[in-house]
Design a protein around this nucleic acid. Structure first.
Lengths: 229, 229
DNA sequence: TTCATAGTTCGACGCTAGCCGAAGCATTTC
DNA sequence: GAAATGCTTCGGCTAGCGTCGAACTATGAA
């Protein structure tokens, strides 16, 4: 029977696995759409909608409508710090998640994440694009450089066509298997389309794994100047 | 579908109102017994027992058995910081608890704790007994010194009669309101009996508060050489 | 010894909260 | 205009969790 802030209320908000997944997905600081978060949490959009409403109502998330999308991000630094501390305590208690995503090596190597390239190859690509100055950080955001536009044209991507929407051209997306960022945004999706169009890789239709042919992976590494495996 | 520490697990632990009450009650750093926490949380001892077991298993609490009591305290600084941050976020979200509890000053001043003296006067007594060499630390335990035996006789306590049982003569007991030790054990109980027998103080029968008469408190302070209030 | 108290275990009950299917806006695209 | 997409609301189902009564163990008191 204490007075004071209602810590149980917001702890309970974080305490649901689906919501916790959403929150950790947002820890990168990037805003994600409702559907992306639904996939991230492993629930249907209806369920996600309810969760997101409650998280917002509880002051943990901030919403930003943009066209028919709804971008969600953490409500503030304090929320981020809270989550980090929570991860620290959880790790200290030695409780790692049991429900580990499929340890499928193929998934870790290369997979599709909302129509862009993720996994080991995805993060390598992201690093290489930064090093080569094709994309650049601009504060919290990412932008396509002038050199990048030239590169895109040479790779067969029509940037002008991508720029019509208001959706960001470049976004970073945190990779669960690598804990590092890979490239999202319409440019990221275009790269994956191109990779498939060139026949370098194809999707496994019953999974998110992306299967590169040996020659395809070699061409991919050459194109983006990745160090060989 | 992320990997990493299971933040939902421990957030859910904090997310139950009863458990949250227990944790906030422990935020002062004081150790409390299982029953005290049950009262604090407003649940029956059975329910509390289950909660406390889960909190300990989850790495949030630390247990310390002492006789037939079980003292519980936060497992570490990190847990305390987590709770504080949680309160900060909760307060920021504008969610305050309505239920307010009594902070009875009389209870803090002097009360009965399993038949020995606790509260502010109890901890003062404990310190004075140590300083005057009536009791002394011996590793983790406490013992009555030779000087102490003489003092006890002068105060009207028959140490030989107390020594028949196997129960320790002197024990320290953590004080919830002061977060400091006071004297327990059969010697501690004997002191309280003597205080009551001398008419210095009397129990309030519907509470654990101990009511000293003005003259009684003065005599008590003189007897044990406490600094005046 | 016998009694009282602190704490635990077990079992059963009830309620909450998460989940999804179906249907309903709202916005964008063709 | 019609179709598609992103998101929300509603309703019903189910699993899980918190709750307590009753019975049990262990420690301390008389």
């Amino acid at each position: 029977m204490k007075s004071g802030p209602d810590i149980a209320r917001i702890a309970a908000l974080i305490g649901d696995p689906a919501r916790a997944n959403m929150l950790t997905a947002l820890m990168s600081g990037k805003a994600l759409t409702a559907t992306e978060l639904a996939v991230e949490a492993g629930v249907t959009p209806q369920t996600a909608s309810s969760h997101l409403a409650r998280l917002t109502e509880g002051g943990l998330l901030r919403q930003q409508k943009q066209g028919r999308h709804k971008y969600l991000s953490l409500a503030g630094d304090e929320v981020g710090r809270l989550l980090e501390l929570l991860m620290g305590v959880a790790a200290g208690a030695g409780h790692l998640r049991s429900r580990t995503g499929p340890a499928d090596p193929a998934l870790r190597h290369a997979r599709v994440c909302y129509s862009h390239l993720a996994g080991d190859l995805g993060t390598q690509l992201f690093d290489a694009l930064l090093v080569q100055g094709i994309i650049a950080r601009q504060g919290e955001a990412l932008r396509l450089t002038e050199a990048g536009r030239g590169f895109a044209a040479g790779f067969g991507i029509d940037i002008a066509a991508l720029s019509v929407g208001r959706a960001p051209l470049c976004r970073e997306c945190l990779d669960w298997s690598e804990r590092r960022a890979h490239l999202a945004g319409s440019f990221g999706r275009a790269i994956l389309s191109r990779i498939e169009a060139l026949g370098w890789a194809s999707r496994q239709d019953d999974s998110r794994a992306l299967r590169f042919s040996p020659a395809g992976e070699q061409a991919f590494r050459a194109q983006f100047a990745l160090v060989s495996a």
